[in-house]
Design a protein around this nucleic acid. Structure first.
Lengths: 192, 192, 192, 192
DNA sequence: CATGAATGAGTTTTCATTCAT
DNA sequence: TATGAATGAAAACTCATTCAT
């Protein structure tokens, strides 16, 4: 039983437990004690590593966004055409990892939380900007000046599908992805 | 000197205060005391009229949905063509009353809340069904069998625009409406 | 069993319990729960009326100073000569009410607390200024320009006797008073 | 690479850090972690060397009293007349080392702490006895039977000046010393 | 109709202390 | 000799909720 280098392990476990707990409770009114118990440690340890509950929540949000960002980047790496780039983004967005119930629930909760919390809002803004930039970048060669507008619409649609998934019984990534793709197709059909 | 017939007045004031408070705090972690103070009554009275806090929250949600529903119905009343019906729904969705910051914030919070609360979920399901039914009904003459699918897409887009508004500085109803209209136009352009 | 107008009663009981508790524990590391229990109420009520623990402590300090101030004022009212004025101040300082163990202990603790707490410090500064002003006022006709200096010395001596009383088994007000009077006598014997 | 003979170094560093920390916080509600960090070691080490926090506090107090005692002894060594002996005691009491803010703050805190703590009280009693004995010893040849009484008064005055210094902005040793000397002079002027 | 009074239950947070390495 | 890891215990504080008036 190693006693050194536990920090990263505990941090990861706590972040994971936080997401799971939010997913289960369906709200951020989750107790540090329960999160800690789920992670197999005392609540004191959670505070030891993360400070306040808020920091733990932000860390969880950051984790989700980082995972999502990594997924997008990986998918983009293999895309050669503009259209493929967009598909890559969509695919990553609705990929199983980011689209499992607990993650969606946590995502949605953070979305709400960002309304009143600076740290969370900052994180979300970064995500927004990145998604938008990726979409615009890929759309530009295809639709020119309309890229900005279309990007905004697609981003909203993605978020809308996410939010609806949070309430649906079983999430269906491929179907959501297809839905966005359909809208995209119409955009490209007759640009402008 | 206790007045008669105060009940509806108090209830309305409390519901209104609840929405305002949620809008200000940006979360459902709002205290009954503050809501009551905002409504100019004691917290005991809030419990007297609504029972538990949860019931007050659900009442607020019901109020928002009712207001929205009434707006849609009123708008539909003046619409003669299918296309006009859809426009009416969209217009009502992004009309100033339903689209002011506090209402959007409350809406979003209830959306999240519905994940773990039966009463809230039921209410939301009703809203979902009604929106969908309205859209399908209007789309059917225009796109036939694709109506279901398109309705789903439009509904998701509406929700997505709502959620994004919750974080944006100033909500912009007309712009959001135009965005959905643009997607709709493309759907109708080349049906199926 | 009256249910209205309890606030002043509870506040007084809590302040009294606070002083008693500090006297017993001998430190400000006293819990709100114990204070509340001693006052016969729940700890929640203590917070309800006083806000934070700190505020309760400051209220207790303010109470002690107010009692002391009232005692001094009452004693001064009957004093006609300068010398009698000083005696009155001393007598009030070491009077049984202000000189009972719990009060001395609380006083001393507040003295320390004032080092790091703005509210407490302000209160103590007021006490200091008032004591000094009273002493200077009474000494001036007797010793002229040396009044300031003598006042300072007497004040320090009073505080020193207080602090020592805090550790002694049984406080002995008359003896402490006599000690200050002796120093005072020598000051007046050969002024300046 | 663990070094040998570190114990005295660590102990001294921890005691010093304790006094500094108390001076900064202005209370004994100081954490072992912070003291340890200030001393450049882990909190576990503080416990390793001192056992409980309480023991560390007592060690700090003992250090202060020992330093003070050494100062007095050194000063007394050079004093030949009774009057010079008293001056030596006073001078040592208000010498810069014992009279710097952190030390005064710690002293005052220990004074309070002694109310409820046996170890601290014992230490303080020893200090009291020693001071008193030194003063009486020096006063006896000058004032005879009044020595006891005068010693008590001087000791109280010294403590009072200390306590007042704890709250004053900048400590002023020489001035405090002069104040005691003035009272002493009057005592000696007309013995009895 | 309305509220001041009151509290139980719970939550975050802090900290001294222990222990295996 | 020294520490990172970990926790139990306790404390402050909050809040929904009840009740007598």
């Amino acid at each position: 039983m190693p006693k050194l280098g536990m920090e990263p392990i505990r941090r990861a476990a706590l972040v994971k437990a936080t997401i799971a707990e939010i997913g289960e409770v369906g709200s951020l009114e989750v107790t540090v004690s329960r999160i800690a118990r789920r992670a197999g440690v005392s609540s004191a340890l959670a505070h030891h590593y993360f400070g306040a509950k808020e920091d733990l929540l932000v860390a969880a949000m950051r984790h989700i966004l980082a995972t999502y960002g990594a997924g997008v980047r990986a998918a983009l790496a293999g895309a050669t055409t503009p259209r493929a780039r967009i598909s890559a983004i969509l695919h990553a967005s609705f990929a199983s990892d980011n689209f499992e119930p607990a993650v969606i629930a946590a995502w949605l909760n953070f979305y709400v939380h960002a309304q009143g919390n600076t740290g969370a809002r900052r994180l979300l803004t970064v995500y927004h900007r990145r998604l938008r930039s990726n979409l615009v970048h890929a759309l530009r060669p295809l639709v020119g000046a309309a890229a900005d507008d279309h990007a905004e619409t697609l981003a909203a649609l993605i978020d809308g599908l996410y939010i609806r998934q949070a309430l649906g019984a079983a999430p269906d990534g491929p179907r959501a992805e297809a839905r966005v793709a359909a809208v995209l197709d119409r955009m490209l059909e007759k640009p402008q």
